[in-house]
Design a protein around this nucleic acid. Sequence first.
DNA 1: ATATTTGGTTTATTTTATAAACTATTTTAT
DNA 2: ATAAAATAGTTTATAAAATAAACCAAATAT
Lengths: 94, 94
Amino acid sequence: MLAELDPLLHSQLRLGVMSLLMSVESAEFTFLKEKTNSTAGNLSVQLDKLSEAGYINIEKSFKGKKPLTTCKITKKGMKAFEEYVNALKQYIKP
Amino acid sequence: MLAELDPLLHSQLRLGVMSLLMSVESAEFTFLKEKTNSTAGNLSVQLDKLSEAGYINIEKSFKGKKPLTTCKITKKGMKAFEEYVNALKQYIKP
DNA sequence: ATATTTGGTTTATTTTATAAACTATTTTAT
DNA sequence: ATAAAATAGTTTATAAAATAAACCAAATAT
C-alpha cells in the first residue's frame, strides 16, 4: 500500500515555499513570490496555512516604511518536509 | 524559478495510479483500489481523468460475468510521469 | 427468497487552489 | 504640489479538485 502524502505539503505552491525555506535562514514575501512565480494573493493564503500548521513562522515588520513579511521554517516544518519527501519517494522510485 | 508540476499528476491518487502502472504491464481496477487505498468512486473519477488526458488506456470487459476494468499506461503517460518526476526533484533536492 | 458482496458509475458535497478586487502606503512623474 | 503608478500585501469570490454518498446490476451466500 502506498504511503499517505501530507496534504498540506502536497500543493505546488506550499511545497515550493517549504522547499525554498529549507535552504535558507529566512525569506521575504517578495522573494518567495518571485521564486515560486505566484500571485501575492495566493501566496498570502498559502503562507497563512503553513503558519497555522506550525510549519513556518511569519514575522511582520517594516523595511523603512514598507511592510516586510519574513518567513522561517520551523523544526516541525522541517520534519514534515522530510517525511513528505520520504513518502513521495515511494511514488517516484523507478 | 521553480518548475511547474503537471497538475494532472500532482494528485496523490492519480500519482499513485501512475506510479503503479509504471511498474506493471496492466492493472485491474480492484488492484489499483487496494494498492492506493482509495474508494471506488474516487478511483473511477480519477481513472477517467487520466484516460481523458491520454495518460492511460482503460479497457472494460468481463471476467466471467463480472465487469472487469483493466488499465495500462500509455507512452504519453510514461513521458508525462518522467517529466513530473524530474520537475519534482527540484523541489525535494537537499 | 432475500440479504450481502462485488465491481463499478453518477451525482452531490466539501475542500482547495486560484484569481480578482481591495487597502494602505510610497514612490515616481508632471 | 498633486496625480498616477508601483509596492506589499490582505480579503473575498470563483473555479476546480477531491472525496463521499447514493445508486445500479449481477452474483453469491443464507
